[in-house]
Design a protein around this nucleic acid. Structure first.
Length: 412
DNA sequence: TCTGGGGTCCTAGGACCC
DNA sequence: TCTGGGGTCCTAGGACCC
């Protein structure tokens, strides 16, 4: 036993109510909803008892909500109708039109997330951040961590998190991150489960492949085509067969994972690789008909990315754009600059260049701007940036679509 | 009536250098 | 004019995760 996994459910509070409720909608739309809440009820903080103080009919019913977005989570009352997280709200509205749609208070979630992580690092300092509500911990060196196979420490963490945030969490304890993650799901929402190598066959192998962190919808589908449904089914295949069918790297990983083997260390610090902002429109937009709107939106996204870079003390050498067309096909275009930048105008110019290289005759639903190849000014990476200057590359004239030049002149 | 927003990592081809 | 091999960088796309 040398690592264990914890996950906290930050959005649990509406589930105290027996009403069918869905939380979500997408960042911008939720921010608008939340702003409306603040202006109407200025003295009311968003929290577990919100619905005791604010009439439920203040919030829209799904049936009355026309906007785009997905459900972040849903109460059990809503789940009975088949509504679940990551489901599109349009679909959810069909299944459960009477459900109430609630916004997420992102600032509050971030605040709780920080408290959650602070409480844990005070007890077990070797912590890997896995997002807003999940962490890995290596508690090998934590005094008393081995008592009752880790159960005593897990209970202490649960209790401390509950005291500090009022929220519950589920914890899995296992000899590595992979198994700990699986274990954390055994006993939701407020449980502790301890899994050892001897439990592999009994507890892990019967699980569907999708439960493995790293097997998504595509890999799962392909596995099913080969008649592989459970983790045990993967384990039953020869390593060579997996490599032949799933590639050298992924096939080998599948084999290791199915046998419960994972040697990844808990990573306590990491540098960001990219920063991005994107937005899905309320309606599909077109480069010609919605030129002004799109131009303003692009400027806004670039400003946000620049702001994020500056706030966190980074510059970026590569700027890219992303579009999602009607029908959900996506394209990206990248441009690497000679000089790293965190300047909104420079990013905007580069993003405009990128946009010229995509098909703008089709309507699209999403526009995003991304900064990558991040450089922290004043570091060794920064000093070497000059030597790493890109070799001059010939501009592909054919790609520089003159038609879109005409359509999108202000994007230059 | 589909499918948010923020990320990471991997693969693969072409350019370019030695 | 029949064209190697290794390495790095850039770009585009895609799978996956929270």
């Amino acid at each position: 036993m040398d690592a264990f996994y914890a996950s906290v459910e930050l959005l649990r509070y509406p589930q105290l109510k027996g009403l069918p409720m869905v939380i979500g909608g997408g960042r911008r739309r939720e921010a608008e909803m939340f702003e409306r809440l603040r202006t109407t009820y200025p003295d009311t903080a968003w929290g577990p008892d919100t619905l005791d103080r604010i009439p439920a009919d203040f919030f829209p019913r799904l049936a009355d909500y026309a906007g785009r977005g997905v459900a972040t989570t849903a109460t059990y009352a809503a789940r009975q109708f088949g509504v679940g997280s990551a489901m599109g709200l349009m679909k959810a509205a069909k299944l459960c039109p009477q459900a109430i749609l609630l916004p997420v208070d992102f600032e509050e979630v971030k605040r709780i997330s920080r408290t959650f992580k602070r409480v844990i690092t005070e007890i077990a300092p070797v912590m890997e951040d896995r997002g807003v509500d999940e962490v890995y911990i290596d508690f090998t060196e934590v005094p008393g961590g081995q008592r009752e196979g880790g159960r005593v420490l897990a209970r202490l963490i649960q209790k401390s998190i509950h005291q500090a945030t009022g929220l519950t969490c589920s914890i899995g304890v296992a000899p590595n991150k992979l198994l700990a993650k699986l274990a954390s799901e055994f006993n939701k929402p407020n449980g502790i489960s301890i899994v050892g190598p001897e439990d592999l066959q009994r507890l892990i192998w019967p699980l569907p492949c999708r439960k493995l962190n790293g097997i998504g919808p595509k890999a799962d589908e392909k596995l099913k085509l080969h008649g592989i449904a459970t983790i045990g089914d993967i384990a039953a295949r020869e390593r060579d067969w997996l490599v032949t069918n799933f590639g050298k790297s992924y096939g080998a990983w599948l084999h290791e994972a199915a046998w419960g083997r994972d040697e990844r260390a808990v990573v306590t610090e990491s540098e960001p690789v990219s920063m991005s902002r994107e937005t899905t429109f309320d309606r599909d937009l077109h480069a010609v008909h919605d030129r002004a709107e799109l131009g303003a939106l692009l400027t806004q996204l670039c400003g946000q990315v620049a702001n994020d870079l500056q706030r966190k003390g980074y510059t970026a050498r590569t700027v890219g754009v992303k579009l999602t067309y009607v029908g959900f096909t996506k394209v990206t275009r990248d441009l690497t600059l000679d000089t790293p930048t965190a300047d909104a105008n420079a990013i905007r110019r580069a993003a405009g260049q990128c946009l010229k290289r995509v098909d703008l005759t089709r309507r699209f639903r999403l526009l995003g701007v991304r900064a990558s190849k991040l450089v922290k000014p004043g570091t060794a990476a920064d000093a070497s940036a000059d030597q790493n200057a890109p070799h001059p590359k010939p501009r592909d004239k054919a790609q520089r679509d003159e038609r879109t030049d005409l359509l999108f002149p202000e994007l230059d």
